[in-house]
């Protein structure tokens, strides 16, 4: 197993490189002189010259890439001029908030999505199936930011059950229950679309599996139907559900940006939008590379989970 994890980690290295290349190339599309673009309103001649020296911005593209990469490998993601602090510090601060939000949503979408899919398949064409199918359709069609706004309107403004926005109460908050109440709406709003997608796929994966011969074997053994569905069939269906969970993890991680805007959640997504609007190029660059790299690592975890489930995968 350790060998397999190591192998997957090694195979992730070229992907991580690819990610830095892509981000670098995208950022190289910025028109005009890069130093001026990065500095924006801070572009005094001294600053421009200093930045050119530090980042090698006056050098050819390839050299610039390697200087940037070398700096990053040493943990130096550059400096945000708008915030006047190192990019990595800011990203790490913000990423923890995003991780709490996206992580919760991911768990929600996995649990509810799979459960809904299994129930739907087990009761195919029954009332529960129709109700779930329709709810799923509604869920994957509603923009998460609109859903979030409506939730605020209903649960925070009208019913006053939950706080309107933010991660902690401004006065006297900061403990776990406080976080929980603040987290509830954004995590749900973010999870809805992903839940729909997972439910859909789980349903079809289950229907596929329920027709297999080994399900008939389980029934012939006298295994009761609940166990046939939730153990035998679901375990086999997980083989096709897990990769989709991996994709959905990327979806909640990046889709968090909308929810963070709606709920004033101090995450990395909101940071990126602010940075884009302020033309804080280095912060965008560093934030994107960081989040994408985390996602690559998460996908390795997904592969490992898959290999734990399925003994047919060579480890």
């Amino acid at each position: 197993m350790t060998g397999y994890i190591l192998k997957r980690l090694i195979s992730a290295i070229p992907v991580l490189f690819g990610i830095t290349v892509i981000v670098f190339l995208i950022m190289a599309m910025i028109p005009g002189d890069p130093a001026t673009a990065i500095l924006g309103s801070y572009a005094t001649p001294e600053n421009v010259e200093k930045l050119n020296r530090d980042l090698g911005l006056d050098q050819p593209l390839v050299a610039r890439y390697f200087i940037w990469l070398g700096n990053m490998l040493q943990g130096d993601f550059g400096r945000s001029f708008a915030l006047n602090r190192p990019v990595l510090d800011e990203v790490l601060d913000r990423f923890s908030a995003t991780l709490i939000l996206a992580g919760t949503s991911f768990v929600l979408c996995a649990v509810f999505g799979i459960a809904a899919g299994v129930v739907s398949a087990a009761r195919q064409y029954g009332f529960a199936d129709k109700a779930i199918t329709f709810a799923v359709l509604l869920g994957i069609s509603i923009p998460s930011f609109f859903l979030g706004m409506m939730m605020i309107l209903i649960f925070a403004v009208n019913l006053k059950w939950l706080p309107v926005s933010g991660m902690y109460a401004i006065y006297g908050g900061g403990d776990l229950p406080d976080l929980f109440w603040h987290l509830l709406m954004p995590a749900l709003a973010l999870a809805v679309v992903a839940t729909g997608v997972v439910a859909r796929l789980s349903r079809s994966a289950m229907l596929e599996v329920l027709r297999q011969d080994f399900i008939r074997t389980a029934r012939a053994k006298g295994v009761n139907e609940r166990r046939v569905v939730w153990r035998h069939a679901l375990k086999a269906a997980m083989v096709s559900i897990i990769p989709v969970l991996g994709i959905q993890a990327g979806f909640v991680l990046s889709g968090a940006v909308y929810i963070e805007m709606v709920f004033q959640w101090p995450g990395v997504g909101r940071m990126l939008v602010d940075a884009i609007l302020k033309r804080d190029i280095l912060l965008v660059q560093g934030g994107v590379v960081f989040v994408a790299a985390c996602y690559v690592l998460f996908n390795i975890a997904v592969d490992v989970a898959q290999s734990l489930l399925d003994p047919r995968i060579k480890t």
């Binding site: 990610i19 950022m27 965008v284 994408a292």
Partner: peptide
Amino acid sequence: GVDMLMAFPYILLALAIVAALGP
């Protein structure tokens, strides 16, 4: 190359592109 692009959470990639081209 396509696989690399797909390794990104995709809204993030869209944000990066908008960041470069401007809103």
